[in-house]
Structures are given as C-alpha cells and as structure tokens.
Design a protein around this nucleic acid. Sequence first.
DNA 1: GTGTTTTTTCGTATATTTCTGAAAATACAG
DNA 2: CTGTATTTTCAGAAATATACGAAAAAACAC
Lengths: 181, 181
Amino acid sequence: MDITAFPEIEAFILHWGEMGTHWGVNRSVAQIHALLYLADRPLHAEEISESLKLARSNVSTALKELQAYGIVRRTHVAGDRRDHFAAETDLWEMTMRISAERKRREIDPTIAFLAELKERIDVRGNVPPHIGERISRMHEFIFTLADWSDQVRRLPRPTLVKLMKLGAKVARFVGGPAPKA
Amino acid sequence: MDITAFPEIEAFILHWGEMGTHWGVNRSVAQIHALLYLADRPLHAEEISESLKLARSNVSTALKELQAYGIVRRTHVAGDRRDHFAAETDLWEMTMRISAERKRREIDPTIAFLAELKERIDVRGNVPPHIGERISRMHEFIFTLADWSDQVRRLPRPTLVKLMKLGAKVARFVGGPAPKA
DNA sequence: GTGTTTTTTCGTATATTTCTGAAAATACAG
DNA sequence: CTGTATTTTCAGAAATATACGAAAAAACAC
C-alpha cells in the first residue's frame, strides 16, 4: 500500500501531524501514528521512512515515543529480521493510554510542584494571603480532575461508552436538573 | 505587588508558561495568564510587560488571545485611561471556556475534515476498504467525545462538581460493576 | 570470533515559532 | 481641530523545537 497512491490517506496523515503540533506532540510522531493507524499490517521503520519522507533516525526516535505512550507496539514478521510496528486501533484504548501518559509526564509533576509551592509560601509567611489561596485552589482543582481521570480510565470500556452516550443525562443521578436539549 | 519580591510567584508563572508550551499555548500567553490569575486587582499592559520582562507588543497580542479564550476580561479603573485586565479565577469556568475554544478551533474543523474525507473516499471507490472504516471510526469517536464535552459544559457547576466527586461510582447507574478502590 | 544488517545516539543544520521594536493606528483630552 | 497617551500591526531578529546524517552500538548469521 503506497500512500502516495491515495491523496486521501496523505491528507489524513498531514492533518494528524498538524493536530499533533497544536497539542504538544511533534509532527513526525503524529504522522507516523496516523500512518500506522491506517495500515492494515505492521510496517518496518524503513517503509515508514520512505512513505513519509522522514530520516530513518527520526523515525526511530518517533517510534520510541509512540511506544512510550503505549499506542504502538513492536511485532515481528516471520523471516524478517527487522522490527515491525503496529498502532493500537481501538480508539478508547488509545485515548486512555495517551491521557495516562500525559498525566504521568505533565500533570503529576505539576500537582507535586503546586503542593511544594504552597508549602514554601506557608513557611515564608509574608506572602500576601490571596496568593496562597489561589495556589491552593489550583492545586486542589487539578488534583480533583486528575483523580477523576484515573478513575474513569479504570472503568470497563462498555461502561465508559454507556456513560458517554448518556451525556448530560447522568446529571439526574446526582439530583441535577434535566438537561435542556 | 512586585513579583520579583516573591520567588514563589515567579516560579508559578514560569511553571505555567512551560505547561503552556507542552499543550500548544505559547509561553507568553500562559505566563500572562498566570500573573493575572494571581493578581488581586486588574493590571494594565505596561505593568504586565515590566513584571514579566516582555515587549509591550507581545503583551498586547497575548492579551487578545486570552480574551479570545474568554478567560481574561478588560476592565477599567476610574481615572486611568489605560485598559486593565483581570483573569477568570473560577477554575471550572476557566476550564470550560478553554475547552470550548479549543474545540471550536481544532476539534470541530477536524470533525468536518474527517466527514469530508470519508465522503471523498467513498466517491473514489478504489481505496482499500479498511481505510474508509478507520477514518469513519475516528470520525465517530471524535464526534462522540466532542458532543459529550458540549453537554458537560452546559451542566450547572454544582452538578458537575458532584459528578466529578462521585468519580467511578457513577458506573453503578449504568449497571457497571462497583469500582475496586 | 568476523561480517552484515538494523537500530539508536547525538551534534549540528534546518524549520518553525515566538518575541521584539519601530511605525501605524486608534482613542481621547483640551 | 492639534497634541498626547495608548494600543495594535507587522517585518525581521532571536529563541526554540524538530529533523537530519554520520557514527556508534546492538543484534544476528555464519
């Protein structure tokens, strides 16, 4: 399957690459992910490199990143020494893994940082009180969201899908008003 | 309130700026947002420029961006011709507005793009069928999430907070298993 | 072990984004 | 209207992130 044969495939890959850049994922990583998502068989690094016209070394680095996210796995093809790579195609699974990894990399350290900062502010004593309050509120807020995301991530997929489809109607279970539309 | 007087404040601003860069928000925008979040009164552009050592013009651009997100508003101070700026300090409100704007800018166009792409693939006819399926699934998935986010955004804040605190326990309402921990 | 294929590392080149400063535009007071 | 304060625009400079290619390392066959 040569991607240049289908402009639609190329368009998807380019769009996905751009999306990546808007969300802090580098373009090559996102493009390779898109390519593997569309592929119906595992691809080796050389193929990827040629298809996307990226340096072989760049592909290597990007694949490591995708594996760190847990959304691409290495597989082997009989009679071929080269590593082959396949993307997770279950989109819920993919989303959960990306969110878990980004939480680990960025959110957890931020929570720790805010806790430490609040401590330092309290020790110092002479910082205007509203500063401590704002920092505390941010800490608590991010912690609450992060904790919620951890719980949601552990839900069985079918439960998650049901909840999602329910949308704002879940509000009725906590005594909220019926949603308007 | 001179931020250089408190290294904790500066640390918060720098951290927030870095967070921004990891999520596709430019550093100056995020830093200014952090400063305004901590400030207990509206600040004018010149103050911001001096506090953060950013060019006045850069501050102007960044403030426009923050206003486009709806998380900073322009106010006026009696007897001062200059515009003053204050950040939304309710973190739920802030989060909802950021997510609404990012959806508008990035997700909605992506949904439209995927729909259009699927259409083109169907018309063309000779694209391998699994490609069309993968694109369709991605389209549906993103649409479902986006629709869910719209509904959640419309929920009254107290309802939202209750749901969040409930965490994985909401699963019981859709016949899911009791969460483990 | 040696030779060959494949992958990774890493310093540097390139591309991209961000920031600046000067100039233009706007808003307002008198 | 004229003059002054304030804000915005925009082309180029600076900073940052990304991608490359050469060389090293690793994996494997023989």
